[in-house]
Design a protein around this nucleic acid. Sequence first.
DNA 1: TAGATTGTTAATCGATTAACAATC
DNA 2: TAGATTGTTAATCGATTAACAATC
Lengths: 208, 208
Amino acid sequence: MKIPKPAIRRLAVYYRCLQRLKEEGKEKTSSKELAQRLGIKACQIRKDLSYFGEFGKRGVGYNIDNLLEKLKAILGLESVWKAIVIGAGNLGKAIAGYKGIKEQGFDVVALFDVDGRKVGKKVNEAEIHHMDDLEEFVKENNVKIAVICVPKESAQQVAEAAEKAGVEGILNFAPTVINVSVPVENVDIAVSLKSLTFQIIRRKGKEK
Amino acid sequence: MKIPKPAIRRLAVYYRCLQRLKEEGKEKTSSKELAQRLGIKACQIRKDLSYFGEFGKRGVGYNIDNLLEKLKAILGLESVWKAIVIGAGNLGKAIAGYKGIKEQGFDVVALFDVDGRKVGKKVNEAEIHHMDDLEEFVKENNVKIAVICVPKESAQQVAEAAEKAGVEGILNFAPTVINVSVPVENVDIAVSLKSLTFQIIRRKGKEK
DNA sequence: TAGATTGTTAATCGATTAACAATC
DNA sequence: TAGATTGTTAATCGATTAACAATC
């Protein structure tokens, strides 16, 4: 079955909302409650879930623990994903040190940089290695994900090196399109800012 | 006219690609060339541009300088946008110190945090202020954009404070939905990672 | 039973793409 | 003129939403 790309991102959002509901001590919820919290339509939530199965009880709703387990399996979060951060600048170090990522089932096991002076330093438990050691490290440590935090000029080259080394997916923070055969997710701060300024201007135009 | 939301983000990507072409010394380009660089269809580029006017010459293509100017106006980049970063943790400091943002017409003029020990320290030229001084600072300095880098628990409250202080748009890095009346763009690292793991798993399923 | 809420179908809406006349 | 490339229309494709039977 074809699954809309936006539906996947929403599943991840539902997952987080369910975690929150659980923290609040709730045991069951409904598409209506989730929809209200997230500002979307209830039928969209039901539709998104229906791509993968029937997880609720009619007339009752969803058991939170159960739905969390199901989403965990769908999103591939049953085991911890080993990741590396390439580019140990401010952003790379911030990502590597970000606790939220570990909580969500991702483990940044090392950073890589071309700057020899950074090699050996640590960000939490993760050590900074030299780029020359990338391939060996990825293979020996079974790293699955590379987070690219290098300047745009070297992003394509770094992505190719990561793919060659054997990573299976790339999270790209560099402001450029990268072309590899493994899946890539882009986090584009500059583009998001520009989309924001466009909306601000449009909004002002409409106010009048 | 209704403009597809994805089209706006693509305009920002075209803008960046044109900057790159210019750096390479080129003076003209075509929808075909841009499409090849960006891995999308040429007719999509022409369609996206057509929402805003006619910027090319039939049989010839686009003048890069001219198209850059037009996109600059569309995206609202003709003047510098003053921004603040709220939350002076690792991520907040990394964003504030990120040179790419300044190059693109955004100026982070200050950071804010509730931790008094951080107050007075600097990230490049931007000083860290206490949250209590947010409203006064925003008003006096004509700040338009707030970048939220606080934990999810305080994100909603901080967003409301920023809105009340007078910012016109919010870039939200906190992993939660925030509800305000000004435009919000979300940069959701955890969601992007989960979307990535879903794709990795699906891809493996198909290979067999 | 009556009320609630799911899962799913069908309708609507929105976005992308193909195709081509216009024109440089 | 011949070749190239735009701008735009119409067709297609994909995503969202409304509505409701199923059922707890």
